[in-house]
Design a protein around this nucleic acid. Structure first.
Length: 1118
RNA sequence: AGUCUCGUAGCUCAGUUGGUUAGAGCACUACACUGAUAAUGUAGGGGUCGGCGGUUCAAAUCCGCCCGAGACUACCA
């Protein structure tokens, strides 16, 4: 006969490896996909990790989230393909290669060739693939590791090119300037990643200037017309950018003051405009405020203080459109100079420091460039044409002023850029400051300490500099993206609505260019003067273009085998006029790689067209990654899908939080607080780790990872469930229960069976809804609660004797069936979160009974809800039973009466109709659980209940408003008669503060907290009183129970089989003699004794029965 | 600096559309229970619900400001 497996103890890691072998051998993962219908798919995208770094515990977190919803939907009958993937390009890989080889970017092309460098990157990028594959298997993450997409493969790149070409054709790709951090000393742009290296931001002392911009009178608003010359003040920490000034930006809502005073360098009378809030700050030191304009005329040049007078105030919005004379008129912008030198608005302007007016040089400031661009008409940046006719800023790539700058031409804009000892005494900042002072254009010149970024390689200050870049015109598609985002189900919702929504609202064009080596090359070729360009959309097109160029230019080029740099750079194409076209040297942003994965993973549109066009694999039903991907992968997926296909890329997205250490500190190697996922899983098992992560906090909250929590999960949830199974297996094996019998109809099973089955179905329904709603934490917590509080500590505890007592009757079969059903349903419900243990439990049950067709829980269906088994009243009365029992135990404790001592009765006040019937139905359970003989119900007609009325704040609050407080006191003081009357008539007239209110029963909560003369206990409307009188008979029965307990302990200690019959020898004693004579049958029955012998002679160990009574007791096998 | 998230017992977390005395588990103490138990029950200690102000009869809950932790974006005159 088939037996259930029995174990010595719970060993989760052992279960992991056993089940892992089973999955591999029987190809369970493959079957879980292929056994589902092809036309019912649940589409999942794997966000590709980089195998260049080691897997950490946070990867276990995000992958648990991914895995569990995929498993859940598999069990709901969907086909869930999970193609793995690897992110292989990008700066971190380049940096790690450079570190390893001990080189810098400057060495590329000299010490090492580009192809050697790229070969090294390609080699490095998969360095930890084996470790990743290992953790993937060990944590139970089901993903196809055999056919992953890899972003450096030609096929993948070809798809990316195709997507880019689609954007190109939609006119969403353009080349333009952007202001980027740039290191003139190193001759390279810097990424924000590089800028965030420690030590890059340093305090430096710079010469700062508050410059006076002279306005053109005709353009001033009326209030400023009759003052004479008016200057606007603007502050800068980089005076070298002043020649490039083309606008002044004010805050439209900011108040500006017009101040009459004298220039401290030229002593000229001036009118200046600055933010009202900053007047005192700017007019500190030698300035002194005066209250009348007349006082100004007293000023003479030799005075120690300079008077100033506030003439009036205007809003920033009134200043818009004012024109001013160019401050340092070396050159004019080559484009639309008539639109330069005017006041524009910007919401980034603050009154924290400076003058509340921002000197705007669009060529050297990102904010400046944006404000200038958004102004209508657009403010031109200060660009001039070089000798080739290309627009360039006034500072060249070495960081020197161009020759157009006359006396400043050829000088570095920062003294730090000169070679050691070559720097001039006066920096250009100082030279400019002096000139402005002389020309009545400087209001104030000061040294100022501020934080400024430095290049991490050259240690010199960086410039913000306009660099050529390719952009995707994402702003053109903003509305579409916003609209589509509203259809996406974000978990948590706030990430989608707020964080992602705000990001879309403030969308900038996507800067695609990266001046690097290891990445997807931009597939755009241009002729020398950029009048013609081509965007390649496939290998076939490239090959055709190569052939065309070969013919026209007489070359012998071939399609490169590897389309990375440097090979792709060597390809020369030909323009319509027969000119050579060369590739734009940039690579594309790696984020574009990963955002293209829905299509590129299938080599779309060159293969697998249906996957996208017919929606078999697009859009995704579900994706999940860390919340840090909001502006990363989530955005790039969304942007590309919106722009190229006009669709969302994903319908549901879970963004999980970070995994911190147990103190809430970010894990880092430096702090040594990193949790090693391999060690954790090896020690505690994958399931305990997964369960802990899911149950402890919702995935989107940060998780403070505490190993003690994993241990608790192991002990409490898995330990309890294991014990419940062990208990089942032990007795089912004895009785030979293999679920061969027909199911006992629910109606014929006892109350408690119907209860646990009703509760189980309730649980299934809720857990199913939780999973469907992407709320795994609720699901896990419900399952835990069921296993521990209900199944183990109520059902099994109360039913124990049904399993080991008596013959193999229908009641016993019902008990086995009920427990089996619960265990099996739990295994299926928990399978998404705890895939190993669930399968182990499922197989232990199903391999013996063969009830289910599926050999693995992961091939089985999620348990269906049996609506006919659900019963709200039943759940309510069992809740009563649990609470009443708990109250009785509490009363026993108060009087120090052991549970083994039977008591006669409890009193239970009946307050509402139906309560008595409900309790009657579970009466036997209560009485057995707390060892009481009877329940006596009392009603208020008995006159022993003391009722109390409490206000129902919810209903009364609305009616009474501010009289609530007074009413509460009145209601609490209502007497018995009045309360009875309210109950009888369902009406009461309350008079409070001389106002009358008609109330009904609903407005009160009537409870009975007291039964005069009895000790009572109360819990949420239920009150219990306990009769603590112990009669002789009750006493004897108590002794009998004590004897049973001692004998059972001896059996257990002697390692008797649970079925062994015994003979008991008890030393004679008055107390035990009485008990045995009255309860002999009971005792023998309980302990499986053929005989109980009382003898005067001492026999066996001395055993205390009750306090003060000690007798000799021995037990032998019959 | 901006945007967003979080802040409840020593620790991890619940806390419904605002409603009476803010809960659970872990840990600690005592007692009890156990023929499944690394389990469980009962009782106890432990809270200015981050702070201040506001709305309201009533605020952990709604609003404003501030403090702290974290993430992302940016780094600016």
């Amino acid at each position: 006969m088939a037996k259930y497996r029995e174990f010595k103890g719970l060993n989760l890691p052992e279960i992991d490896s056993e089940i892992l072998d089973f999955w591999t051998k029987d190809q369970i993962f493959e079957k879980s996909v292929t056994s589902k219908p092809e036309d019912k798919t649940f589409v999942f995208y794997e966000g590709p990790p980089s195998a260049n770094g080691l897997p950490g515990i946070h990867h276990v977190m995000s992958r648990t989230v991914k895995d569990l919803f995929c498993r859940y939907h598999t069990m709901k009958g969907f086909r869930v393909e999970r193609k793995g993937g690897w992110d292989t390009h990008g700066l971190p890989i380049e940096l790690s290669v450079e570190k390893e080889l001990g080189i810098t970017k400057e060495d590329i092309g000299t010490k090492i060739s580009v192809d050697e460098y790229n070969a090294k990157c390609r080699e490095t990028v998969m360095r930890y693939k084996d470790l990743w594959d290992d953790i993937t298997r060990k944590m139970g993450y089901w993903v196809d590791l055999d056919n992953p997409y890899i972003t450096f493969k030609n096929d993948y790149i070809e798809s990316v090119w195709w997507i880019l070409s689609q954007l190109y054709q939609k006119d969403l790709l353009y080349k333009g300037y952007t202001i980027q951090p740039y290191s003139p000393a190193a001759g390279t742009g810097l990424s924000s990643h590089e800028l965030n290296q420690p030590g890059c931001y340093r305090d430096v002392t710079d010469t700062t200037v508050v410059a006076q911009f002279k306005t053109i009178k005709e353009t001033l608003p009326a209030v400023l017309q009759n003052l004479g010359e008016v200057h606007i003040l603007a502050w800068t920490t980089t005076p070298w950018t002043l020649p490039s000034n083309t606008a002044l930006t004010v805050g439209p809502k900011i108040d500006y003051a017009v101040v009459k005073t004298f220039n401290q360098y030229t002593f000229d009378a001036i009118n200046v405009v600055l933010a009202a809030a900053l007047v005192e700050k700017q007019f500190g030191g030698k300035f002194k405020k005066v209250e009348t304009e007349a006082e100004l005329s007293n000023y003479s040049v030799n005075d120690k203080t300079i008077p100033y007078y506030i003439v009036t105030e205007v809003k920033g919005s009134e200043l818009l459109g004012i024109r001013y004379e160019q401050l340092l008129p070396y050159v004019l912008p080559y484009q639309n100079p008539e639109n330069a030198f005017r006041v524009i608005g910007g919401n980034f302007v603050t009154t924290e420091d400076g003058t509340g007016v921002v000197h705007t040089a669009p060529t050297f400031g990102a904010d400046d460039a944006r404000a200038a661009k958004e102004a209508v008409p657009e403010v031109p940046p200060m660009l001039v044409l070089d000798d080739k006719g290309n627009p360039v800023p006034l500072v060249d790539l070495q960081g020197k002023f161009r020759q157009e700058m006359a006396e400043l031409g050829g000088k570095y804009v920062k003294n730090e850029y000169y070679e050691e000892g070559k720097a001039p005494e006066r920096s250009v900042d100082v030279e400019i400051a002096i000139r402005l002072k002389e020309e009545n254009k400087a209001f104030k010149v000061e040294k100022y300490v501020h934080n400024y970024p430095h290049c991490w390689r050259t240690d010199k200050p960086i410039l913000y500099y306009p660099l050529d870049s390719w952009f995707i015109k994402a702003t053109a598609m903003k509305d579409k993206m916003v609209e589509l985002n509203k259809t996406i189900n974000w978990k948590p919702a706030s990430t989608g609505e707020k964080r992602f929504g705000n990001w879309l609202e403030n969308l900038q064009d996507w800067n695609l260019s990266r001046s690097r080596y290891w990445g997807i090359p931009l597939p755009i070729w241009r002729n020398a003067d950029s009048t013609e360009e081509i965007c390649i959309d496939s290998m076939a097109t490239l090959e055709a273009e190569i052939k065309k160029a070969n013919t026209k230019l007489g070359l012998h080029q071939e399609l490169p085998k590897d389309i990375h740099r440097p090979y792709i750079d060597e390809v020369v194409l030909v323009s319509s006029t027969g000119e050579a076209m060369r590739r734009e040297a940039d690579l594309i942003d790696v984020w574009f790689d990963s955002g293209s994965m829905p299509y590129a993973q299938w080599h779309y549109p060159f293969e697998n067209k249906d996957k996208i066009d017919r929606g078999q694999s697009f859009p995704a039903d579900f994706i999940a990654e860390g919340v840090d991907q909001t502006r990363g992968w989530f955005y790039t997926l969304h942007a590309i899908a919106s722009m190229v296909f006009g669709k969302v890329a994903f319908k549901n997205v879970v963004s999980n939080g970070l995994v911190l250490d147990k103190n809430g500190v970010k894990m880092s190697k430096r702090l040594g607080n990193v949790i090693n996922p391999f060690d954790t899983i090896k020690l505690h098992g994958a399931d305990a780790t997964r369960w802990y992560m899911i149950a402890n906090a919702p995935p989107w909250d940060n998780l403070k990872f505490d190993m003690a929590g994993v241990e608790e999960v192991k002990r409490k949830t898995f330990g309890t469930l294991y014990n419940t199974y062990s208990f089942f297996a032990l007795y089912a094996n004895i009785d030979g229960f293999t679920f061969e019998e027909a199911e006992v109809p629910l109606a014929e099973r006892p109350e408690i069976d119907r209860w646990i089955i009703a509760l189980l179905n309730d649980l299934i329904k809720q857990v199913d809804a939780d999973f469907a709603d992407y709320e795994p934490t609720n699901a896990a917590r419900r399952i835990e609660e069921f296993i521990d509080a209900h199944l183990s500590n109520w059902y099994v505890r109360l039913c124990r004797r049904r399993f080991w007592k008596g013959d193999y009757t229908q009641d016993k079969i019902a008990a086995y069936q009920t427990l089996y059903t619960c265990l099996e349903a739990i295994s299926r419900m928990m399978a998404p979160i705890a895939p190993f243990f669930a399968d182990w439990l499922y197989k232990n049950l199903n391999d013996t009974t063969g009830k289910q067709g599926a050999v693995s829980v992961h091939l089985a269906d999620f348990p269906p809800v049996d609506a006919s088994a659900m019963d709200a009243e039943l759940l309510e009365r069992m809740d009563y039973a649990q609470r009443i029992s708990s109250l009785i135990l509490s009363l026993r404790k108060k009087d120090n009466i052991r549970v083994r001592q039977p008591l006669q009765k409890i009193l239970l006040p009946v307050l509402n109709a139906g309560f008595k019937e409900q309790v009657e139905a579970v009466k036997d359970l209560i009485l057995a659980e707390v060892n009481i003989k009877t329940i006596e119900y009392i009603t208020d007609t008995d006159g022993v209940i003391h009722k109390k009325a409490k206000p129902n704040f919810k209903t009364l609050g609305k009616k009474l408003g501010k009289h609530m407080k007074a009413a509460g006191e009145i209601i609490a003081a209502l007497d018995q008669k009045t309360i009875s009357a309210i109950e009888r008539e369902n009406a009461y007239t309350l008079e409070v503060d001389s106002e009358q209110y008609e109330l009904n029963l609903e407005d009160f909560e009537i409870i009975s907290e007291d039964i005069p003369g009895w000790t009572v206990a109360t819990d949420r409307g239920i009150t219990v009183a306990l009769d603590v009188n112990i009669t002789d008979e009750l006493y004897n029965e108590g002794i009998a129970r004590e004897l049973v307990n001692r004998i059972q302990n001896i059996r257990k200690d002697s390692d008797f089989e649970v079925t062994d019959r015994i003979i008991v020898n008890v030393e004679d004693h008055e107390v035990v003699r009485k008990a045995i004579s009255s309860f002999s049958d009971y005792i023998r029955n309980e302990v499986l004794a053929n005989e109980i012998r009382l003898s005067d002679s001492f026999d066996g160990t001395m055993t205390e029965i009750v306090e003060g009574v000690e007798v000799g007791l021995s037990v032998v096998k019959a």
